Simulated assay, not measured.
Amino acid sequence: MSGSVPLPPAIDSMTLLAAAVVVHDRDADRVVLLRRGPRAKFGRGLWDLPVGKSDPGEPVTETAVRELREETGLVVDPADLTLAHVVHGAVGAESPGGFLTVIFTAHRWRGTLVNAEPRKHSEVRWLPTGDLPRDVVFSTDAVLHRCLTGDVGVTLHGWG
């Protein structure tokens, strides 16, 4: 028997919760971005924020802190996160019921930036806010601009 097994309707229609962090070094006016690797489930070769899915029962702030550490080696205290933006997608690569990504900013962190998941990402870098790449996942460039200017809001993706 080939093909995928269909999910029950209750699971298939669930919205995936994810969190991302804009780590902003105000002194150098730069942010952390990662480039998705050749085996990425979506956005291969594109730049993105450190982002990942929430584990069941995990507060979204803990998701943000965990994913940032797992992907970049940087450590942020949840108390240092500021709500910056929300992206609500109609459909995602692993979420036919859509996704909701809560994006935080952080201006304080510990650690040294590393590509902690080289199987997922081809590179992780500090990039100047005035010279951000255009080859980004979804509207990361526009979302970053909104986050950095304090324009808290919602971006809808794929809702027609």
Rank of each mutant, 00 (worst) to 15 (best):
V75Y: 10
R108Q: 09
V65H: 02
V32W: 00
A93S: 06
S2Y: 13
L49K: 06
E58A: 00
L113S: 00
G130P: 04
D12V: 14
A142F: 14
V114Y: 10
W126D: 02
T140F: 09
G98V: 04
V76A: 03
T15K: 09
R66T: 03
L49V: 06
A18Q: 12
V60P: 07
P56L: 07
G130I: 01
W159G: 03
A18H: 08
G111Q: 01
G130W: 02
L83S: 13
H121Y: 15
G158W: 02
V124S: 01
V152G: 07
P78Q: 01
A40Y: 02
L148E: 05
L74D: 00
I11E: 15
K53Q: 13
S54P: 03
L132E: 04
V152W: 02
V65F: 00
E123W: 08
V136W: 04
F42I: 14
D151F: 12
G3V: 05
E123C: 11
P8G: 05
R146F: 12
S54E: 06
H24N: 05
R36N: 05
W109H: 06
G153W: 05
V154E: 10
G3A: 07
E70I: 08
L148G: 01
L81R: 03
L100D: 11
P50H: 00
G37P: 01
R134N: 15
P59F: 09
L68I: 11
E67H: 09
V87F: 08
D141H: 12
L17S: 14
A19P: 03
M14D: 14
V152E: 04
L113E: 01
A106G: 03
T82E: 15
V60M: 10
V60K: 08
T155N: 10
H145K: 14
G158V: 04
L81N: 00
T15H: 07
L100G: 10
A84G: 06
G92C: 03
T63E: 04
L74Y: 01
F104G: 00
R146E: 10
F99N: 07
E71G: 00
V124C: 02
N115I: 08
A90M: 11
K120G: 13
V124M: 02
L113I: 00
D80V: 03
